[in-house]
């Protein structure tokens, strides 16, 4: 898969994740390079966004927001944002 960081990504990651989670997210981003991406990345379009916005796991309880666009070469994911998402699951009965 083709991907590139968005201009605000690093700033948002630094604000919304702990330092160790930022580093782990970088490692998970590398998985996006494979086609097809590994299943544990759980890459999928987000509901209600016309397949333009997608989500993928960013390690631990974090997820990426990816925006699908196209350039002269072909499809390209712009990595827009990342943040905690699944942290309350263990508190559910």
């Amino acid at each position: 898969m083709r991907w590139q960081k968005g201009e605000y990504y690093d700033k948002r990651a630094a604000k919304q994740l702990r330092v160790e989670d930022v580093e782990r997210a970088e490692r998970w981003l590398e998985k996006l390079t494979e086609t097809p991406p590994p299943g544990d990345l759980k890459l999928k379009p987000m509901e209600g966004h016309n397949r333009v916005l997608c989500e993928a796991r960013a390690g631990g309880q974090n997820r990426f927001i990816l925006r699908l666009t196209r350039d002269g070469v072909g499809p390209l994911f712009i990595v827009e944002d990342v943040g905690p998402h699944d942290i309350y699951k263990k508190h559910r009965p």
Partner: peptide
Amino acid sequence: PSKGVGPIHGDAAG
């Protein structure tokens, strides 16, 4: 929406 910055990783095949 962000502009892409830095290197583009991977390729478009498939």
